[in-house]
């Protein structure tokens, strides 16, 4: 196997890792700050993909429809996320973990049915602008030109979140809440409001990731069930609540999956689960996470 083919496989892993990062970033943020394991995250990601299709459809004929539909999908999903937080999630902060899991799992089912009722069961397809319909070649390795957009979006989200957490007041509060929400509350900062906005931001990221995913293939019901498992693997490997961990975890999962598909197709997912299990045993808080608060 020549070096170009291996590089092409690396690029495939990088793009898949970026897609996983976009999905897992919000999941990790929500768990890190709020201690809520949001099983509905991927369902909202899928809803973002459908929102993106709707916006693209509404604006068809305009040259910007494709590009605008992606952030709009994030905004629409964030609005749904805000309602979910205010109406449901807010009431379960102090409940047991299993109750939280049941609630978020129920929300995932409700969202899936809502998608079915709203958009129907037929596949939805977004036609890309001509400029991103053909492959590009990087050192001779082919890459779907849209994946340059995906990688750029992933890098922008990573940089934006890093900037937000490092340089803004709200970012500092969020980081502090990851370590000790009691202390943050004791300083007079309204924790419930912070939670609402963190949840909304997390779901914005999910919706945005859905919008990014939409033009890759067709949008179909059930897409969310597979990606949520892999997103959980990412955050377990990287560490819940750690932005760097999520990024590294995503790239590990993406690359491992990509190269295992090439060399050991039968064991592609198995290897990911083995790594996840090993991390859970040896370092339960992940590569870059912090031990769970008590």
């Amino acid at each position: 196997m020549d070096i170009t083919s291996l590089f092409a496989q690396f690029l495939s892993g990088l793009t898949y890792g970026t897609i996983l990062f976009l999905v897992a970033a919000g999941l990790s943020l929500i768990f890190g700050v709020m201690n809520i394991l949001n099983f509905a995250h991927a369902a909202l990601w899928l809803m973002g993909a459908y929102f993106s299709y709707t916006f693209w459809n509404w604006m068809q004929g305009n040259s910007f429809s494709f590009w605008l539909s992606i952030p709009l999908a994030g905004v629409a999903a964030a609005a749904v996320g805000w309602v979910i937080e205010v109406v449901l999630i807010k009431r379960i902060y102090k409940r047991e973990l299993y109750e939280q899991l049941l609630i978020t799992y129920s929300i995932a089912l409700i969202i899936s049915d809502t998608i079915k009722l709203t958009w129907g069961v037929t596949n939805k397809l977004i036609v890309r602008p001509e400029i991103i319909q053909k492959p590009v070649f990087i050192f001779g390795a082919p890459l779907d030109s849209y994946f340059l957009v995906v990688i750029a979006a992933g890098a922008a989200v990573a940089a934006g979140l890093w900037w937000f957490l490092k340089y803004t007041r709200y970012g500092h509060i969020v980081k502090a809440a990851v370590f000790s929400r009691e202390m943050v509350g004791a300083l007079g900062i309204p924790i419930p409001r912070i939670y609402t906005w963190v949840f909304t931001l997390g779901i914005f990221l999910a919706g945005f990731a859905g919008g990014i995913q939409a033009p890759i293939g067709s949008i179909t019901l059930g897409m969310d069930t597979a990606i949520i498992i892999q997103a959980f693997c990412v955050v377990v490997i990287g560490g819940f609540g750690s932005l760097l961990g999520t990024l590294v975890g995503s790239l590990i999962v993406g690359e491992v999956l990509s190269f295992t598909i090439l060399f050991w197709p039968d064991g592609a997912m198995v290897l990911i689960f083995i790594i996840t299990a090993l991390i859970l045993i040896v370092r339960p808080w992940g590569l870059f996470g912090t031990p769970m608060r008590i």
């Binding site: 083919s5 793009t15 293939g217 597979a226 990509s258 039968d266 997912m269």
Partner: peptide
């Protein structure tokens, strides 16, 4: 190759097969 049922990301399969 055995992509799981419901696979949404075929990129690695595509480059793998092309290789």
């Amino acid at each position: 190759f055995w992509p799981r049922l419901g696979e949404t990301q075929f990129t690695s399969y595509i480059t793998g097969i092309m290789a």
